[in-house]
Every structure is written in structure tokens, then in C-alpha cells.
Amino acid sequence: MKLKLDKNKTVLEFTIGIISMLLVSTILIQVKSVDEYKKSDIENLREDEVKTQISMYKDKYEEAEEQYKNNQNKISEYQNTQNENQKASSLIDEELKQSEALIGLTDMKGEGVIITLNNTKDNQYTSENIRDLINELKYGGAEAISINGNRIINLMDIVTINNTFIVMDGGRTRLDSPYEVKAIGDRKYLTSTLNMKNSGFVDLMKSSNLEIQVKESDNVTINKYNGTLKNDYMKEVK
């Protein structure tokens, strides 16, 4: 008698235990899906924003894919030449060359645009104007830029000294009107970026009585950076 009752009780406890477990796991799953839903917070985007974002991600994806393929090729080359010292070192040479080109230590050529800026009697170009132009060119995908023959490299400064003249590269180079700005990149894209109606750089300058001409070219040549690069304060970390 006593035994039978205990059995009943155990069955009941078991059933309730299993039900509770099921309920708890259901809750956990639910909580998780709600969390994941929150992650994709895209409902607030406008359609054109979404479109720009898509094209941005497409571009970035394609670039990353290209670089990835390059890397894979290099890796397989390294693998093939692992026992042949000479070939391996020529691969390093090649990579070194590529990195120097990315810094701006080599002369470059390609299609692009040449922009001429002239001060007028009414107004003068400021260093901020020139920095904005460079920012716009980079937005238009410029790969190499120079001003009056001076290559723009990463973190290059262009500032006004004493409210009178414009200098770049830590004061080593003085810039004067007329400014000739050259850029290599997709020339159609570069010109359309600069020529955007009203908000584009060309219209903005013209509305402040400044002179600007934009010319497309098949063959823009841009000189290498001639200074020395300093790396005194930063150290690579893993």
C-alpha cells in the first residue's frame, strides 16, 4: 500500500519536473530570438539610406574579396616555394613594393582628374577648402592625390600659417595659387562627385566667387612622396 502510493507520487513529480523543464527551455529560446531580432535594427532606415548601405557593403565586400584572393594566391606561392630560398625572397620583395606603393613612395599613373584652383580678386582659397577638396576626392574613390606636385600621403597636414599662407607636410612645403590638384581614380565618378549640384565642391566654390576647373584625363601622373616617414612613437601590438 505504502509502496504504491510512493510510486504515484514519483510519477507525478517526474511529470511536473519534465513539464517545468520544457517550459523553461521554451522561455530561453524565446528570449534568445527576441534578442536576435533586436540586433537587426534596420526598421528605422529610409529606403535611400538602405540603398547606399547596400552598395557600400557590396563595394567593401568586393574589395575584401579581391584582397582575400590575392592573399590566397600569395599563400599558395609561398607554399610552392617554401624550399627554394630565392623565390621566397622575391615574393617578399614584391610584397614590399606593394606596401611602398600604398604608402605613396612610388610614382603612379592612371586615369583621373586634374583640378585647377585660382584665387580671385574677391576671395582666396583657404587651407580648409583644400582639405575639403581632398576629402571629396577620397569620397569619390581617389587612389593617389597630389597638390602642386606634392604627394598627399596618410595623415598629411595642410594648414594656414599666420592667417596668410598655406603650408603642407609639417611646414616643409608652401602652397600658392594657382593650385593644381591631381587625382587618380574612376574619372567619371570623381567628376560627378565634385560636380554634384549645389552641394558639390565645384558649385560651393563658385558660389563663393572662387575659380575652379575640373578636367578629366586618361593619363594622370602623380609623383612619389619625397620626405621621410617617421614612426617614433607607435609600436605594433599583436
Binding site: Q67, N70, E143, A144, I184, G185
Partner: peptide, 16 residues
């Protein structure tokens, strides 16, 4: 300072 996460390469510019 973190490294740049994207890809850097030249499509239009060629080394001379």
C-alpha cells in the same frame, strides 16, 4: 589604435 579592417589596393593607379 586598432588596425584598418577594410582592404587597401589600387584599381586605377599603376606603379611607374
Amino acid at each position: 589604435i586598432e588596425k584598418f579592417n577594410g582592404a587597401l589596393n589600387y584599381k586605377y593607379a599603376k606603379t611607374i
